[in-house]
Amino acid sequence: MTRAPGIAAAGLGLLALAAASLLTGVIALGPGTWDGPEALAVLAVSRIPRTLAALLTGASMAVAGLIMQMLARNRFIEPATAGTGQSAALGILGVTLLWPAAPIWAQMGTASLAAILGSLGFLLMIRRLPPTQPLLVPLVGLIYGGLLGAAVGAIGYQLDLLQYVEVWMNGEFSGVLRGRYELLWASGALTLLAYAFADRFTIAGLGREASVSLGLNYARVVAVGLLIVSVTTALTVVTVGMIPFVGLVVPNIVSRLAGDNLRATLPGVAALGAGLVLACDLLGRIVRAPYEIPVGTLLGVLGALLFLWLLNARPRHAR
């Protein structure tokens, strides 16, 4: 098998990134500056939660993007740009207005429900698009996501909630502390669920008719996929804010290198997503230290460049 060295390299890379992340921040930690209990407290309260949050978010958003692409049978979409994330934000906004003291589970539930409805709307909408024009799908997604995002912005502006809107729509990890990121473990669990469904998502990517012919309960597979994508996105929006482009570029890169057999590629997508988000978060902490650049901003720049490169490098799928 040629895969073992790849797995080892990915594992080592992630470990190195995680170690660097633990040692990087305003409070210097390292040989010479290590002062026992104080340093341990920084690690336990801030650095370890932050590192875990970045890894979990990256892995789960990359996998969510992959699933969305298989269900829509289109490479150029992801939950953060095609309306799922914006719907989740709309859901939290609604709950914030109507029930300001809502506990976290109520926020989470409303955001998830809104995300499911938003993604379902998107899937129904693109079903009517001609399959010969695959680029229409991401365009419709961008407009749809843009409209929902604009609604969130407008309502937020009217009601003086723009500060919150900013937090939900632009993801960053500087606010992650122990006790404020643990919901993300649920995204990790959903990613494992996605792996259990890997074969079924791959078959769903062959289309409805091929799926039915192979005895798949297609509607149920789409429902499970939609649930994973929507709840993962909602969890991310609620805890750290929307992280764009991971769900788009990571599955595309892995698909080019290793194909779309999810049973084989899903772990790679999760690892690369985790690595990319953690690397961007690390970069954001280093570039203008002691200040920080939000990971969403960095990924927006980097992701847009990667996306342009992908569009250009893969004309075969654009026709």
Binding site: N74, T202, G205, L206, G259, D260, N261, H317
Partner: peptide
Amino acid sequence: TVAARLTVRDLVGF
């Protein structure tokens, strides 16, 4: 029209 990128062996395997 197969949109997914599968090897021939994987496709037949499904």
